[in-house]
């Protein structure tokens, strides 16, 4: 290739550096300032760190018990994201594996049909799920029974919404990784006397692990930092870290929002480093 073409990437290098680093600089700057309004002059900003104390000291009284709302939200985010990732992994891997094993000729169509719900509006889908979790719902009025055994506001409701919204993000990379495994390897393993289960465990699974890592990150991160699904499906009862950032944004308390966003960012940088150990150019991200 002509080395002249390298120049084509220069605008993108500038763009990436600007749009990756400037916003991070902005949250860094505002996370250590006193900024709490939307219309501000740069001259009004001054250095302030007192809100960082809230991370450890912010105690609220709920049901006669003191607890730290930020730490609780981080803990909730972590628990919900972990469970969602684990269940999506089990179900998503299972489904991807079944598609790969199936004798259907046009697997792409099956895959497309499975991930089709992803193309429809996320907020609307969550609202539809919320409506069937209510006591009087449209499903019950037609079929006479409740399709989902849990009601709005319970952890199970939120988990159901998260798992089935983000599972396609697990299915896709896992399927891509599975598809790349050569059939010869499996046949060799079976010929050499391994049982089908051992073949799967010792040959197929390790080779598809790259897809599992990509998928887990693609499920974990939006679950960890998202706010729409927990808010809709729990009526605001279950507070994840994203919900706190949304509230701070609504009330223009930008410095606290930035502080929390910064903490999420650190977590993400960790995951990106983890991913690059398995997948150098992000080929399984699609």
């Amino acid at each position: 290739m002509n080395s002249l073409y390298k120049r084509l990437a220069i605008p993108y290098q500038v763009w990436l550096v600007l749009l990756v680093f400037l916003p991070i600089m902005a949250i860094l700057l505002i996370a250590i300032s006193n900024l709490t309004t939307a219309n501000f002059n740069l001259s009004d900003i001054s250095f302030q760190l007192s809100h960082w104390n809230d991370l450890v000291e912010n105690q609220s009284l709920v049901d006669g018990e003191y607890f730290n709302s930020y730490l609780t939200a981080f803990k909730n985010s972590f628990i919900y994201a972990s469970i969602t990732t684990l269940v999506s992994f089990i179900f998503g891997y299972f489904l991807a594996y079944q598609i790969k094993k199936s004798r259907i000729k046009n697997k792409f169509i099956i895959l497309t049909i499975i991930i089709l719900p992803m193309w429809s509006n996320l907020i609307l889908r969550s609202e539809a799920l919320r409506s069937v979790m209510l006591d009087n719902n449209i499903f019950k009025s037609i079929f006479g029974f409740d399709i989902l055994p849990f009601s709005v506001g319970t952890p199970a409701a939120v988990l159901f919404g998260l798992i089935f919204t983000y599972m396609p993000f697990m299915i896709l990379p896992v399927y891509t990784a599975l598809e790349k495994i050569e059939v010869n390897l499996e046949e060799a393993s079976l010929d050499l006397g391994l049982t089908p289960f051992k073949t799967f465990w010792k040959v197929v699974f390790p080779l598809s692990f790259k897809g599992v890592v990509s998928g887990s990150i693609m499920v974990f991160l939006p679950t960890f930092a998202g706010f729409a699904i927990p808010k809709i499906l729990s009526n605001g009862n279950i507070v994840l870290i994203g919900n706190i950032i949304e509230t701070k944004f609504t009330y223009n308390i930008y410095n606290v929002g930035s502080m929390l966003a910064l903490l999420i960012l650190i977590l993400i940088l960790g995951s990106i480093l983890l991913l690059t150990r398995f997948d150098k150019e992000g080929e399984t991200l699609l």
């Binding site: 749009l19 990756v20 916003p23 991070i24 902005a26 949250i27 990150i217 991160l221 939006p222 960890f224 930092a225 998202g226 706010f227 994203g242 950032i245 949304e246 944004f249 929002g257 930035s258 966003a261 999420i264 960012l265 993400i268 995951s271 990106i272 991913l275 992000g282 991200l285």
Partner: peptide, 12 residues
Amino acid sequence: PILNADIVTGFS
């Protein structure tokens, strides 16, 4: 931008 959480991207 793909891996960053939407909320961090959006907010920043």
